[in-house]
């Protein structure tokens, strides 16, 4: 993998191959500067939600405008990007976002996790472990982990300021007492460096442990809610739990019907009217790579 932080471009950038009707990576420079400043503060205060003046993008709010703005502010012409939705490179929204950056930034694209210098994702973290120098950009719908407990921004902001997360613990514990389990299966809250409680975006809780001490830079963009937050590499990210009810990952204990993996997150596919099921890896690149390797 090339080191994306190698700034060998220097003073004479090559002739861009992006659509010349738009600025490089679509956004205007002032907007990019504003997002870049927010990203730096986000990295300096891991897990804290930095307000930013999100712009309207040529795709709807809720479809990744936050992630797209973050990616747009981070891209360099040398980047090779991968876009996934539900773990798959070929879902329509992933295709649409990938095309957007091909067109507006002229960057190379890939489906291989290992080849990508920047990965934009919705709802999954790839199964292939990320490496140093890579950037993972999450699309975030509701960045505030406390929002479902307290709808008011003025209140939740105070709670973060005072590190007052009792309400969250009470909610999780009530789940345990009524269901025997914490009834949050995705967007499962995490604590960052023992300070900020953070929403990991709606990834399945199976993916949560991948955030902890991850060698890649993790950036989170919530366009509609106007928030950016970040995790530098090697940051402590711990899923909230209790001594008597430790956090557990959750996956169907089946194996992938295509590649045979027994440790990946699986999609359940209904095969016929009888309700026959098949389980396949949600990470399409990981699955395809395993099949290729087995064939060799």
């Amino acid at each position: 993998m090339t080191d994306p932080s190698d700034t060998s471009l220097g003073d004479t950038p090559p002739e861009g191959t992006h659509d010349q009707d738009y600025n490089f990576a679509y956004l205007d420079e002032q907007t990019k500067r504003m997002i870049r400043r927010a990203l730096l503060k986000g990295l300096a205060i891991p897990g804290y939600q930095v307000p930013f003046a999100s712009r309207e993008m040529p795709m709807p709010y809720g479809w990744g405008t936050g992630g797209v703005q973050v990616t747009s502010a981070c891209l360099v012409p040398d980047d090779c990007i991968k876009v996934i939705d539900q773990g798959a490179d070929d879902t329509t929204n992933a295709v649409s976002i990938r095309k957007f950056f091909e067109r507006t930034a002229g960057v190379r694209t890939t489906e291989k996790t290992g080849e990508a210098s920047l990965i934009q994702t919705r709802h999954r973290i790839p199964e292939t472990p990320l490496e140093e120098g890579q950037i993972l950009v999450y699309q975030v719908p509701i960045p505030e982990p406390l929002r479902f407990l307290e709808p008011r921004e003025t209140e939740t902001r105070k709670m973060h300021a005072l590190e007052e997360y009792g309400l969250m613990h009470v909610k999780l514990y009530e789940d345990i007492s009524s269901h025997g389990h914490i009834s949050t299966a995705y967007a499962y809250p995490v604590s960052v460096e023992e300070r900020y409680v953070m929403d990991p975006s709606p990834i399945p809780k199976f993916d949560n442990p991948k955030m902890h001490q991850c060698p890649a830079v993790q950036l989170f963009g919530a366009g509609r809610e106007q928030r950016i937050y970040a995790l530098p590499p090697y940051t402590d990210v711990v899923s909230l739990d209790f001594e008597d009810h430790p956090f557990t990952r959750l996956r169907n204990d089946g194996v992938c019907g295509l590649c045979g993996a027994d440790d990946t997150y699986l999609d359940e596919v209904i095969m016929d009217d009888e309700g026959t099921r098949m389980f396949v890896c949600s990470d399409t690149d990981y699955c395809a790579t395993r099949i290729e390797e087995a064939a060799e």
Partner: peptide, 12 residues
């Protein structure tokens, strides 16, 4: 556009 993108990546 390109100079600041590359510089920002370094700063980031």
């Amino acid at each position: 556009a390109v100079n600041s993108a590359v510089a920002f990546r370094g700063i980031m």
